[in-house]
């Protein structure tokens, strides 16, 4: 733990000269603890305690309406893994996650690449990138909900009409609802990721681009052969963040429809909404806690897989030191 590393650290103020330095006074020995206390007290109260309490609660039957928690062992988990709705919610989380994360990161990369070149009013473009991120998600989702209205008069349906297509009942359909939600997520996060990529790109030496340009590389091949390799750690970072974000997706699908059900067929009920429904509509806090614990485990697993994959890739990069051959 961080506590150990901090307190074992060598830095300590010199004892006052007037006193024999055999044993430092209590106040002084406790000083480092006092300095770090504010963070750890807050973390303990608002970070660690809710986490542990959730885990504890997941072994109990406990209702929102009241009563004493009753220990039921692994029953909540047994229920959860037998629940069709849970697998549906996991699947929707996955599909909406893919639908939103992949286009989002690809577009962010492209935008960052373009912004990285010298151009007029560059600051304006960079700032406008972050505008969707700075917008209130709730307000934006409500605007998008009216854009994706089921009526022929909704903006999205008007656009489809201009393209000669039939109006779509966005919220009612399975994929249409998911695509609409993915578009909201993409709109909100693309600029944010683009700025992270842009920051990563600025640390790539200009001379690499100049050398590539002298060799006659087009902007696209500069992007593929200079930018992408240089950005690998940044890309990994955004993938990890987006994975966590996609797993915890809640506001957009929750406000897109009417409540935590996620449509008449649960067609966009992601796992966070299922948890919310179980806790606050059905009032079973123990079961909701079990969902929370499983989702936490899932996030950790996904992040480990992501980083594992990435380290596999980077290990392939340097030339092998021995001549016994590479992995390919």
């Amino acid at each position: 733990m961080a506590v150990d590393t901090l307190t074992r650290g060598p830095a300590r103020p010199a004892a006052p000269r007037s006193r024999p330095a055999r044993r430092r006074p209590l106040g002084e020995r406790s000083a480092p603890y006092v300095y770090i206390a504010p963070f750890f007290i807050l973390f303990g109260a608002f970070g660690l305690f809710p986490l542990l309490y959730t885990v504890w609660l997941s072994f109990y039957e406990y209702r929102l309406a009241g009563g004493e928690p009753e220990f039921i062992g692994l029953e909540n988990y047994a229920w959860l893994f037998g629940s069709e709705s849970f697998y549906n919610a996991l699947w929707k989380t996955f599909t909406i996650g893919i639908l939103s994360t992949v286009p989002q990161l690809i577009m962010a990369l492209g935008l960052a690449h373009l912004l990285n070149y010298n151009m007029r009013v560059r600051s304006f473009f960079r700032i406008s990138m972050i505008m969707p991120y700075a917008t209130s998600l709730v307000a934006a989702t409500l605007v998008f909900a009216s854009i994706f209205a089921n009526t022929p008069g909704g903006l999205a349906n008007v656009v489809l009409g201009l393209l000669g297509m039939e109006p779509v009942a966005w919220t009612a359909g399975n994929w249409t609802a998911q695509i609409a939600i993915a578009i909201i997520v993409t709109w909100h996060w693309t600029g944010y990721n683009a700025l992270i990529y842009l920051a990563g790109m600025q640390s790539i030496g200009k001379e690499l681009y100049e050398a590539a340009a002298i060799d006659g590389a087009s902007r696209f091949s500069q992007f593929v052969h200079v930018t992408l390799p240089g950005l690998r750690p940044t890309i990994l970072f955004t993938i990890v963040l987006s994975t966590i974000g996609a797993t915890q997706l809640f506001t957009e699908p929750f406000l897109f429809g009417n409540g935590a059900g996620g449509g008449a067929l649960n067609q966009y009920q992601v796992v966070a909404m299922y948890m919310y429904e179980m806790a606050f509509d059905i009032g079973r806090l123990g079961r909701a806690s079990a969902i929370a614990v499983v989702v936490l485990a899932l996030v950790i697993l996904l992040v480990l897989i992501n980083t594992g994959l990435a380290s596999l890739r980077t290990r392939e990069r340097p030339l092998p030191k021995t001549t016994t051959g590479g992995t390919r």
């Binding site: 009942a169 009612a172 359909g173 409540g259 059900g261 008449a264 067929l265 509509d281």
Partner: peptide
């Protein structure tokens, strides 16, 4: 809620 949702699925889906 569950029955209302089922009715919506009949109407809309």
């Amino acid at each position: 809620q569950a029955i209302g949702q089922a009715l919506t699925s009949v109407e809309s889906n």
